[in-house]
Design a protein around this nucleic acid. Structure first.
Lengths: 108, 108
DNA sequence: TGACCGGCCTCGCTTTGCGAGGCACATTGG
DNA sequence: CCAATGTGCCTCGCAAAGCGAGGCCGGTCA
């Protein structure tokens, strides 16, 4: 998958996932890989900065949770503002797809 | 429209347009604006570098044409390699849309 | 004459994804 | 017991793209 095409889609993807429930970083990567049948692996260098930015904007929040074995995970949960932002992003996404499709689609 | 979302879609858009026939820069901008009902204006700072890059890759070629009033326009025409590349890009685009839709779509 | 439109272009900035690397701890196998 | 692997977090520097702003030139029209 062309890296440039992915740009800008990450927040939409993350918020969509988190709207189903809290998740931690590693889990997000594995979930994306699994759901796409391995065709798309979200990279850490893209994931963590994106999560931190969403948190800074207060669209999501995070908390550490200790596992039975003593190890820690950082969970991210969507906030009210994030849900609203997600709705806007979804509309924007649809507009974008329709726009490009309008050029690609007609004869191809 | 979010600038980041647009990234990577420009070559696809340009090649799609040029596959309908040769066009010049200004015309491309106006055509895109018209077809999207004004909601998307392709910027010159994105258009010209993209065209030049496509030409450097020999996906398109260019030629100057003098108008009746003496002014010049630079027309761009798609090449065989460009058509093949366009097909690949279209497949990639479909994969990309399906992928994102897989996350956004289910519950939204 | 001056404003506006058509028409080409470039430069510097910002943002993003990515590769690579680093750190830490648990589990598992030899 | 030790090494390899897996889990889990992170950052840094690079490349690439879009954008705003600006530049340049010549026509047209009030």
């Amino acid at each position: 998958m062309d890296r440039e095409l992915l740009k800008g889609s990450t927040p939409l993807l993350l918020l969509s996932l988190l709207s189903e429930g809290p998740m931690y970083g590693y889990q997000i990567i594995e979930t994306v890989r699994a759901r796409t049948g391995g065709s798309y692996t979200l990279k850490e260098g893209a994931l963590y900065p994106a999560l931190h930015k969403l948190e800074a904007a207060e669209f999501i929040s995070s908390y550490w949770e200790t596992q039975p074995n003593g190890r820690e995970r950082r969970y991210y949960a969507i906030q009210a503002g994030g849900t609203a932002f997600l709705d806007a992003k979804k509309r924007e996404w649809k507009q974008f797809v329709d726009m490009v499709q309008g050029f690609v689609g007609p004869r191809g």
